[in-house]
Write a protein that binds this DNA or RNA. Structure first.
Lengths: 238, 238
DNA sequence: CGGCATCCATTTTGATACTG
DNA sequence: CAGTATCAAAATGGATGCCG
């Protein structure tokens, strides 16, 4: 006997599988998870949130995923309208990058809440866990407090391990990205483990500085602003 | 060759499986998904958010889960510290209920963001999808705006289909639950499909009233307050 | 009955090999 | 580099059985 939910799945595409498992519930959470609940999906979105990436970049950033699964997830995400595949013409050859659509980018608040939850309610990560500075940038964004950034317009440079990122704050908004900042008011240097521990609130800034694990360059006022803007508290619900 | 992540999983319990799949990443999102990413897990938490429930209640609310999986998920959630099993002594017999721990309840903002995302970025649900008024109550909570509730202290009664719920607003906080409100300033009556569509912003309130799909009792001022408090906008990120 | 444990058919997944 | 193809291992879904 065929299950009722599958009976009338709309025949949208061509050689579409008939049975992607759906919860079949009239509930925003269940319906979101119908699209996002499979393994790896949200992690792909996480990695694309920082910048568009190529297939092989994603493969590197997601150890264990397996080439077929990555291809499958990207196709699904594309059909679901969360990811777009774009051909970028470089001098030598044309490259394909995957980038988030607006719907995909709109998942950032969901991921912020997950990160915040992990800070408060999970044990510290295992030492052998793999890190990536881009994930730490996302954690930084989860600490962004719009109110504290009102009226501020300056940029910060973050040197995490051997990679350089920037955060441009402009009156209640942030934009983060790879590469150096144009005219940074603060330059922050730390290894990824240190900075992610600071973001999670597991170590204090003065402690990290005196340990030599965190280095800061810039005027005192700007440094204070930076830490006020990227400080904890943003959670809206009680 | 054994995978590195599995090499040193702490031998916590007794007959614990060695290999629950972990992403093995130093990233709050990945680590949260290590605990929450399996199928059904977040839906169980969703259902427990409204009120503690028994095994068979959950089985009813989650069609398709299968008895073994529900038992498995509940055990996992208990070991992970998100769910607590409690024996409640009733006159006739002792009953076991599952309830969220504080860490479990702390996931509510994550679920709110998922619901909000679904409103904006998903197509309307299929007509044959199964609904449950409790999910609609959660959607209502996702619309709660603390600022609009500042200084307000009154309660509302929601009659969804044949079930009755209450929402008590008290100066920037809400408490929702099953059963009637003590002294409701507003009584709202609608079927679940209507109210969930209103919550998602798919139909307007005046339209629903003139269709006879939504009924409101109470003073005009209180009704306006209700819809101001439970209105859209709460998303903190840009 | 409520609360699982067991068995088995399907799906998903992980890992590797292979191709344009 | 950007994927398919293939196949073994694990997770899931469904039915059924057990036990206070």
């Amino acid at each position: 006997m065929p299950r009722p939910e599958e009976a009338c799945s709309a025949p949208v595409g061509g050689a579409d599988q008939v049975s992607r498992r759906s919860y079949g519930q009239r509930c925003g959470i269940a319906r979101s998870l119908d699209l996002l609940g499979e393994r790896w999906t949200l992690l792909i979105i996480r990695d694309l949130l920082v910048a568009p990436r190529r297939y092989s970049d994603l493969l590197d950033a997601l150890p264990g995923i397996g080439t077929n699964l990555l291809a499958d997830r990207l196709q699904l995400l594309e059909r679901r309208g969360l990811v777009r595949k774009r051909r970028v013409a470089t001098p030598e050859s044309r490259v394909v990058v995957y980038e988030l659509t607006e719907s995909g980018r709109a998942l950032e608040p969901v991921l912020h809440e997950l990160v915040r939850w992990s800070w408060k309610h999970l044990d510290p990560p295992h030492r052998e866990a793999r890190g990536d500075p881009r994930w730490t940038i996302l954690a930084l964004r989860a600490r962004f407090r719009r109110e504290a950034a009102a009226g501020v317009a300056e940029s910060y440079q973050l040197e995490i391990g051997d990679q350089v990122f920037h955060a441009e704050v402009d009156d209640g908004t942030v934009r983060t990205g790879e590469g150096p900042a144009a005219n940074p008011a603060v330059i922050l240097r730390a290894d990824d483990e240190t900075l992610s521990a600071i973001a999670a609130g597991r170590i204090e800034i003065p402690e990290a500085i005196s340990n030599g694990r965190l280095e800061l360059e810039g005027e005192d006022g700007a440094i204070r602003r930076f830490f006020r803007i990227f400080s904890r508290g943003g959670s809206p619900s009680a």
